[in-house]
């Protein structure tokens, strides 16, 4: 069993090392502003279908969300233009290095959270929490048996606390 664990550990370490080498530098203001331009444009396009009004009044249910979306759009464009000017004038722009290993880890954690949510549709809170807790301990590569016992106990306690002390109905 120990040998198998060691093999798995080595495999994970080697894969992590390979992934860690893949790095990419991105201009965060440019990418971020483009993202907000896309999101705000889509939402602005959806306003007439999502906010129905039956009034001719100047101030209505659309006024405020429209104003906010326009602010997001206009300031995102300003941010984008500012950084483009910086690039043209050869001034430094804000960048960030993205590491493939970090993003893979993010996806793994997100997948575990989605699994936790999916489990809640089929089983109860305590059981789902125990499965999720054990998955997380695997992720952190915890080898202490006491940690697994603590997580099981914590899941039972939290479930009990919400249901019997706070009288909250859990899945």
């Amino acid at each position: 069993m120990n040998r198998l664990m060691e093999k798995v550990d080595n495999l994970i370490d080697n894969s992590a090392l390979k992934l860690e080498k893949h790095k990419m530098t991105i201009p965060i203001n440019i990418v971020g502003s483009i993202l907000f331009i896309i999101v705000s444009s889509i939402l602005l396009y959806l306003v007439p279908s999502q906010i129905k009004i039956n009034t001719e009044a100047v101030v209505n249910a659309r006024t405020f969300p429209l104003l906010m979306l326009r602010i997001v759009l206009i300031f995102s464009i300003i941010l984008l233009i500012k950084d483009i000017i910086f690039i043209i004038t050869k001034r430094e722009i804000e960048t960030k290095e993205l590491n493939l290993l970090v993003e893979v880890k993010f996806l793994i954690i997100l997948s575990m959270l989605i699994i936790f949510l999916a489990l809640l549709y089929f089983t109860n809170f305590i059981l789902s929490s125990i499965v999720f807790g054990i998955l997380m301990l695997f992720y952190f590569r915890s080898k202490k048996l006491s940690n697994y016992l603590i997580i099981i106990l914590a899941a039972i306690l939290i479930g009990y606390l919400f249901q019997n002390v706070l009288h909250v109905r859990l899945p």
Partner: peptide
Amino acid sequence: LLTPIIVM
């Protein structure tokens, strides 16, 4: 230990 407890 803290992370899964926080999520719960």
